[in-house]
Computed example of a mutant assay.
Amino acid sequence: MSFRIRAARDEDLQPLYEMAKLTGGGFTNLPPDRAALKAKLDRSHAAFARADDGIADELFVLVLENTATGEVRGTCQIFTQVGQRYPFYSYRIGTLTQHSQELDRTFRADMLTLATDLEGCSEVGGLFLHPGERAGGLGMLLARSRYLFIAKHRARFADRILAELRGIIDEAGGSPFWDGLAGRFFGMNFQDADQFNAVRGHQFIADLFPKHPIYIAMLSETARAAIGLPHPSGRAAMRMLENEGFAFENYIDIFDGGPTMTARTDQVRTIREAVSAEVVGTDADRGEPMLVAAGRLADFRCAYAKARAEGDQVEIDSVCATALDLRVGDTVNIVGRL
């Protein structure tokens, strides 16, 4: 069985919608709303169609396709520059230190401050793999394909990159962090706020959210416990991000308190280690496991391969060559499989 990553098309709307219904909530970049998903596809088509380089406010949607059946079994997204249409809000965790001479004591209070520090960064997000395919490294293929896409179109992305991980969601679909903080100001539950944000954007945050710092000690115990923790299903994603060089630098999502990971774009491991090579053979019967990416923009595609690389030349196996429609003489980007 062979899988490849490719650009999303209009006919992918239905499988994207079906996958969105499986996310369980709190997955803002993949809302179970046809109109919102169609708008994402339209925006992605426009980004793929723009041929000139340079950073703009764009979104690229990629999908994981089973090449034997044509079924779409996963998806991921890349935002080139966040915070251009609406402010990109995060909570920054900080500490306020005060000293009392009378008591001869120093008091340190952890605080949450609403910030737009990450505005202008690129973002990788929207990664979802169908539950029936969570084996064989397909989640890793989805995740790392985004970095190979960035490497092939580096001028269209910022020098800093972020990834927001979904936070703790309880069995009822609610968010302890939201209930303990923002829900008190907005008069709506997490599910309603999450859906509103996914479909209409989060300008309402700018309109209604308290701008003053929040003392963490004043939050409920359940809200405090959720700060900076990923959803259990996102722990593997967090490890993958850390392996790529991302770090948690005290920024959290304003809705569910999940961690925001950041990195310097050129220091992301896959981007740093990817090299360009000419295909000199398409029937390698053995070799090292690698990721291979070919094509630009809407022609971009990526898959696993068994490959033998030497200098700026590479031989790949026939399965990968077929999946990516590669021929001798083509140029690809390759990187070792972690």
Rank of each mutant, 00 (worst) to 15 (best):
G94H: 03
L181F: 09
V63S: 01
V275P: 01
G187E: 11
D42R: 13
F149D: 00
R269A: 12
M290A: 08
E278D: 06
L62D: 04
I216W: 00
P15W: 00
D256M: 07
Y215S: 15
L162T: 10
T262L: 04
F204E: 08
G257L: 07
S2W: 13
L142W: 01
P31D: 06
R108K: 03
C302N: 08
R9G: 03
R156F: 07
F88W: 07
E288P: 08
N197G: 04
V319H: 12
G26I: 05
I161Q: 05
D194P: 01
F177W: 15
D325I: 09
D12T: 02
Y91D: 06
A172N: 01
Y147A: 13
S233V: 05
L326R: 02
D10F: 03
R4C: 07
Y91M: 10
L62T: 13
D53H: 14
E133G: 04
N29G: 03
R269P: 05
G201T: 12
T28S: 13
F157C: 05
Q267F: 15
A8Y: 14
L326N: 06
G139P: 01
T113Q: 04
E315M: 09
G120L: 05
H231F: 08
L165P: 05
T113H: 14
D256I: 07
W178I: 10
F79W: 08
V319N: 14
A155V: 05
A298E: 13
L162S: 11
T80C: 04
D283N: 15
R337Q: 12
T322E: 13
F255G: 04
E123Q: 03
F248Q: 14
E119N: 00
H212G: 14
F248S: 08
G245H: 02
P32Q: 11
H153L: 14
I214T: 10
A56Q: 10
L142H: 03
F204K: 03
L127A: 14
R108A: 10
R34S: 05
